[in-house]
């Protein structure tokens, strides 16, 4: 039985090294750790942005992330998963999301990581709003490409 996933929604930044150490502490059965770190880009549609605000649906967010993590653990036989997603006010260059997945071998760790971020982007209730250098603000549109990436993995129960 895999360890339950670590699911955290927070405004504070995360430290990648600390989170990897937490995930693997005391274990010698892990063969590899896949990681994805999402970062705030400084431009959107070619226009410079000065800030990003992340809104979420407290309660449903954690529930959706737990479900996504459980699916990944079962499907790729992962030994552990960490999902940390930031909310609130962020600036270009700031971390947004951390995905870690560990497994005995690299393929499961890497595929599990890709599955987790693809599904998170289409199923977890977060919304981004960008503030541009000219002072205007706009909610980020969902990308058709993200839905297509998630569909490649098939249906999520």
């Amino acid at each position: 039985m895999a360890d339950p996933a670590l699911i955290v929604v927070q405004s504070a930044d995360f430290n990648v090294s600390d989170e990897i150490a937490r995930l693997t502490a005391g274990r010698t059965d892990i063969g590899g750790i896949g990681s994805f770190i999402g970062v705030v880009r400084g431009t959107a549609g070619g226009r410079p942005i000065t800030a990003m605000t992340l809104e979420h649906y407290p309660g449903m967010t954690e529930r959706a992330l737990s479900r996504i993590a459980d699916q990944a653990i079962t499907r790729f036989d992962l030994q552990g998963v960490t999902l940390i997603h930031r909310v609130g006010a962020l600036a270009p260059g700031d971390n947004i999301v951390l995905v870690l997945a560990c497994a005995p071998h690299r393929k499961a760790a890497l595929d599990g990581t890709a599955f987790l971020i693809d599904w998170l982007k289409t199923r977890a209730p977060f919304w981004k709003k960008e503030r541009f250098a000219d002072g205007t603000e706009a909610w980020v549109d969902a990308r058709e490409a993200d839905d297509a990436a998630a569909r490649l993995w098939g249906d999520l129960a």
Partner: peptide
Amino acid sequence: DFATPDTVITDRDEVAFFPPVTGG
């Protein structure tokens, strides 16, 4: 839980409306 236009609701439910999600 994600719902569709056909999902049945009652007066005790919590119903949320939002745009397509854009996290990650």
